[in-house]
Measured scan of single mutants.
Amino acid sequence: HNLTITQGKLFFHYNPKLCLSEIHKMEEVSGTKGRQERNDIALKTNGDQASCENELLKFSYIRTSFDKILLRWEPYWPPDFRDLLGFMLFYKEAPYQNVTEFDGQDACGSNSWTVVDIDPPLRSNDPKSQNHPGWLMRGLKPWTQYAIFVKTLVTFSDERRTYGAKSDIIYVQTDATNPSVPLDPISVSNSSSQIILKWKPPSDPNGNITHYLVFWERQAEDSELFELDYCLKGLKLPSRTWSPPFESEDSQKHNQSEYEDSAGECCSCPKTDSQILKELEESSFRKTFEDYLHNVVFVPRKTSSGTGAEDPRPSRKRRSLGDVGNVTVAVPTVAAFPNTSSTSVPTSPEEHRPFEKVVNKESLVISGLRHFTGYRIELQACNQDTPEERCSVAAYVSARTMPEAKADDIVGPVTHEIFENNVVHLMWQEPKEPNGLIVLYEVSYRRYGDEELHLCVSRKHFALERGCRLRGLSPGNYSVRIRATSLAGNGSWTEPTYFYVTDYLDVPSNIA
């Protein structure tokens, strides 16, 4: 807008934040220059609390790290170098490059900038070799853009010569660093050979998330399962459950009422301010606690030095998902009996873990797994792929695949051998790939016309006998059925096997 004052003059007093240069501009645009008398524009009460600059400061050096910015700028000295009290560095987070010096300023003089007072450097006698002032900004957020400017702080001049310097606002972004852990990993099994893994992005990506790394490792069953005799009275049979499938998407929606109208769909109840505040506090606490764990609990591995020492970490090797089922080394339970199943799973520490690289999504279907087997899954978020990966501390989750139908069934015939004193040795093959492992066998036998009897055969007993022995049988026709019990439950009964026990007292003698 054009402003013209045809008559009258300007009068400025007691404006401590208004620089004289701005008042002189007002004289020019209003056409009143030359009308004012000496005392109409006070030299001592206008701009006496402001830094009124008329020179431009330029930054000469900028260096960044993930949490620091090192700045240096060209030296500046007023005509009387004693008038320079120091520099004021202003900075704040700036997602967009549209910041002005006066953003967030209120009537009390406060604003949204963080201000650092910096002492002037030592003055050199040689004007050509003056030290460049600077400042190291610490405690910054990774991968965050900051708006920065600097200006001088000078003393009051009796001659009211307006001098000083100020830089333009520059924008500097800190470097990326390792992201925080992925949030809320959930693993479920939808079949006997697959596990579905879902997660949420890290709360602090500290860069642009480029991919996720998912490692999985087959877990050995508890050692007590191999040692305890679950045929003993009072000892509860062990059981394991597989990871249940995901709930429906509708039930997972946030901010939804727990109660549904019987007449149909209901609208979600909005969260109160107290609920939102509580969630923010919980989120802040979780982030602080995660940072504490990362800094205190997890110790970084030592990389190899120039002395030739090897990095103890196993090298990563990509495998196809079809090879995942046989990740671990199978060892027989008892070496003397080769027909026992290889369900003991000690994992070799030198073995390469299978892994998958996930790009542009937060889910993965891990296939080719062994049925009813526990897996430990390790999830890392990465925001750099080359020249070397920059990934987060791992988040861990466990899951067990679903049982395989008929995996616990005894394959092959049940054979028998009759000894003296009416002892019958029953023999059968253990299931080759049971659900988890076989903890015991149930032997059901009966003599024709009598009630059915049951015998429990422990895992250890089966390994020693290759089956079991029935003792003290009365003469007669017998039928026997056997079924295995694994961590997933009972298998199917075998087809009945028949044998006849004679009275050993009636056996004919070869003595003449």
Rank of each mutant, 00 (worst) to 15 (best):
P245S: 12
G476E: 01
G374W: 03
K460C: 09
V439I: 08
E465K: 05
G467T: 03
Y396W: 08
S341F: 09
Q252L: 13
N255Q: 13
Y504F: 08
N208F: 06
Y259H: 07
V358A: 07
G306D: 13
L455M: 13
L437H: 04
E281T: 09
E282H: 02
G306N: 09
S486M: 00
S284R: 07
T415A: 12
S341P: 08
Y448I: 14
D291G: 15
E388S: 07
V480A: 05
E356C: 11
I209L: 11
P413H: 15
I276H: 12
P475K: 08
F419R: 15
L364G: 05
F226A: 11
S243I: 08
K233I: 08
S509W: 07
Y292T: 07
R370M: 13
Q275T: 11
E290T: 08
L235E: 09
F289H: 09
C391F: 01
Y375F: 09
E249K: 14
A330R: 02
P346S: 12
K236S: 13
P300M: 15
P354L: 12
S398H: 12
P496I: 06
S315R: 09
S458K: 14
T303R: 10
V329L: 08
R286K: 14
S257A: 14
R469L: 08
L232C: 13
G325N: 10
N435W: 00
V334M: 12
R218N: 12
F215H: 08
K361C: 09
I377S: 02
W242P: 10
N383K: 03
H425P: 01
V324Q: 13
L455D: 03
P238V: 04
W242A: 04
A463I: 09
D291Q: 12
A512T: 02
T272G: 07
S304I: 11
G467V: 04
G322Y: 06
N206W: 11
V329P: 09
E495R: 09
A335K: 11
S492L: 13
D261G: 07
L321C: 15
F226T: 09
A381W: 01
I276P: 06
L470T: 02
W493V: 03
S367Y: 07
P205S: 08
N421G: 04
G374N: 12
L505R: 05
E224H: 14
I276T: 10
C231L: 02
L235K: 06
H425W: 08
Y375R: 01
G472Q: 04
H254K: 12
W493A: 00
P312N: 05
N435K: 00
V501C: 12
Y504P: 07
K406T: 12
H371T: 14
G234R: 12
S284A: 13
C391L: 01
F337H: 07
Q256P: 12
A336M: 15
K233M: 13
N326V: 04
N208P: 10
L225R: 09
L470G: 00
P496A: 15
P387S: 07
V439W: 06
D323I: 13
F462W: 13
G264H: 06
G472W: 10
H425R: 11
K406D: 08
I482Q: 03
A395F: 08
E417Q: 13
G436V: 14
V359H: 12
E433R: 13
R376W: 09
H254L: 13
Q275A: 12
E452N: 03
T386H: 07
